[in-house]
Amino acid sequence: MAPTRLSRTEFAIWVAAAVAVVGLPLLLPIFSIVQLTVFLIFCLLAVSLDLAWGLAGLLSFGHAAFFGVGGYAYGILAVNGLATPAALLAGGISGALLAGILGYVAFYGRVSTIFLAVMTLTVTLILLQVMGSTADPSYRIGSAVLGGYNGITNIPSLALGLPLLPSIELGPAGFFRFVGGFLIVVLALGRLMTFAPFGRILATIRENEQRTELSGYDVRWRKLAVFAASGGIAGVAGGLFASWGNFINPEVFSLSQSAQVVIWVLVGGRGLLYGAVIGALVVQALTQYLGAIGTAYTALVLGLLMVAFVLLLREGLVPTFLRLSLILPRHKTPA
């Protein structure tokens, strides 16, 4: 018998997604492309949380913080003239570092899962306070004025180029393709990892960490590795976000942002990574629709949605759909 493997359908999905990412800018107006780009950035953030939460069972409310730190790092460095790809990389490293530090304390200190959730949320809210209190113009790093709740403005857009040649700004279509391509690469690598031994060991940690340790696996560094990687991807997403709007403010560290990421994954369904993408798209589209029809109850509707999912659709959209359609037969009792 062979271990669980990636199905062929999945490769087809990746190829279709790649074609869509390349083709959509030819079909849709610029305005829609710009809008879709920020949706994809949120998808990336949702996928990063699912890597930690869905795969290894590490619930974090801190992904908004890793995202925000990545965004601020990108903004500060890019405003100071660092090449934007390097600033984006630095955004990822900042997210990974913050996640790594929190993860180290939590996993090597052997605190409970719930403590990790509380600790990450606390750090996020501290960052909200700290970044919010930098309104005085004296708070500046190089030429980047932090700006308190107004945030950093005029952040340069991501520009790519070959060494020695002047780099060119991507423009809306190019940036969309870059974000989409990055998302697909992360998804594909994440899925491959899910089925690799490392990913399977993460699954055992999620199911019953004690049994994993008694089987001779050191769970601590494995949790730290996946959590830091997850924080790094959130950091890159934050950098992309800062590039997208040419701006970042402490709103990224707010309670509602932290909760949003968790809601996306909850709605879409944990553990498959695709669920995170669908969840982020559905909830964002809904939020935008509610905003457009001018209801004042967006938060209420989102809250009810979350309660409904927790009570009725515990697995989330994608796993429920797959179970119903039997595309991906689950390991069930043969009748």
Binding site: M1, P3, T4, P197, R200, I201, A203, T204, R206, E207, N208, Q210, R211, T212, L214, S215, H331
Partner: peptide
């Protein structure tokens, strides 16, 4: 103490 969501085969394999 098992990994409830995983298959019997995977338990032995892992």
């Amino acid at each position: 103490s098992l990994w409830d969501g995983l298959s019997v085969y995977e338990h032995f394999w892992l």
